[in-house]
Simulated assay, not measured.
Amino acid sequence: MRLTCLALLLACSMPAAAHGLFDGHLGERLPLLLAALLLGLFWLLYELGARRVRPRPLERIGLHAAMLIAVFASFGPLDDWAETSSSWHMTQHMLFMLVIAPLWALARPFPQWRAVLGDLLRPLWQPLLRSARYPVALAMLHGSLIWIWHTPRLYLLALDNLWWHLIEHACFLLSGWLFWWSVLRASPARTPQALMVLLLTLMHTGLLGALLTFGSRSFYGAERSLADQQLAGLIMWVPGGLVYLAAAAWLGWRWMSRHWRRAARQQISR
């Protein structure tokens, strides 16, 4: 609980944050304050729920790590650098989709939230949990949002308008969370689908990274450096691809281990 309060105070003490959490008029910074409020509320509810339904130690550590990274990525200096640099912008997106989202999925916060809220938000989270049964559909949704938000028009719109900036980040976080939930927590019967969508996501994000890397001009305005855009493409292509490969290797190993154990039990029973 003290860690949560400390992190929230830290987030609120960043006057140099990207779009100015405390700069300008209230109407201008309202999207940032709303994002900070929602993030802090989810975090606080988790901590309150953890007193009633105790999470596993690694799950709790993963949730707190994800929240701290989310605070840094959304309200820290990284968001300021991302406004003028394509490579830092890509780093921010990679943190949302490849670090925070899978950590949220592995942390499994729903039991703690339910312990506090009861059935208040049941109509909201039940469809979300049911959607995790369809990794192909969630991968298509997540992939579509990645490509849509990297089109020049929407990319620049999110930089110029704080409300669109908030919507962009929410799209990456929520679709990424559902994608990783469906993949990392896939049942044995759905593991082949999960492996397939990891490969699919690796391929299309690698293609987008390659387009940015080998582009002969800046896609996001002449004032933006071509070399910086190429670095952004490499960040998506190489480190991003390694994350998907690592997830596929872990998922495949878990699937094969179950198969080997089942085969060994069947042989013993004979």
Results as ranks from 00 to 15, higher is better:
38 L>N: 05
81 W>K: 02
49 G>K: 01
107 A>H: 04
95 L>F: 12
177 W>S: 10
101 A>Y: 02
44 L>Q: 06
191 T>K: 01
208 L>D: 07
235 I>M: 07
211 L>T: 12
189 A>I: 05
104 W>S: 03
6 L>A: 12
158 A>Y: 08
255 W>A: 03
154 L>N: 08
134 Y>F: 15
93 H>V: 09
28 E>A: 13
64 H>V: 14
161 N>E: 10
9 L>A: 01
206 G>T: 09
93 H>C: 11
93 H>A: 12
60 R>D: 15
3 L>A: 10
148 I>D: 04
133 R>P: 06
202 L>I: 14
11 A>I: 00
229 Q>M: 05
107 A>P: 07
251 L>A: 05
186 A>V: 00
92 Q>N: 09
128 L>C: 07
237 W>D: 00
211 L>M: 15
32 L>S: 01
46 Y>C: 02
169 H>P: 05
106 L>E: 04
94 M>H: 07
236 M>Q: 09
74 S>D: 05
240 G>I: 04
217 R>D: 15
159 L>Y: 11
92 Q>V: 08
155 Y>A: 08
111 P>Y: 00
124 L>D: 04
140 M>N: 15
62 G>Q: 12
4 T>D: 06
125 W>G: 02
102 P>E: 03
96 F>P: 04
208 L>K: 06
95 L>H: 09
150 H>A: 02
119 D>W: 05
47 E>R: 13
253 W>E: 14
257 S>W: 06
128 L>P: 00
116 V>G: 02
36 A>C: 10
38 L>H: 05
118 G>S: 06
83 E>R: 15
197 V>P: 01
235 I>Y: 00
256 M>F: 14
23 D>K: 15
4 T>F: 06
227 A>Y: 15
174 L>I: 13
118 G>D: 01
9 L>C: 03
109 P>V: 02
43 W>K: 05
156 L>G: 10
12 C>I: 02
141 L>A: 10
43 W>H: 10
141 L>T: 08
32 L>H: 02
5 C>Q: 14
174 L>G: 02
241 G>N: 07
29 R>I: 01
152 P>D: 02
16 A>C: 15
3 L>F: 04
147 W>R: 05
234 L>P: 03
20 G>Q: 06
168 E>I: 10
11 A>E: 00
82 A>N: 04
234 L>Q: 10
161 N>H: 13
238 V>I: 12
88 W>R: 07
183 V>F: 02
128 L>N: 03
161 N>S: 13
203 M>T: 15
247 A>D: 03
43 W>V: 02
137 A>D: 11
244 Y>W: 13
212 L>Y: 09
212 L>M: 14
257 S>C: 11
37 L>S: 04
121 L>A: 04
175 S>C: 11
266 Q>E: 13
97 M>P: 08
223 E>V: 15
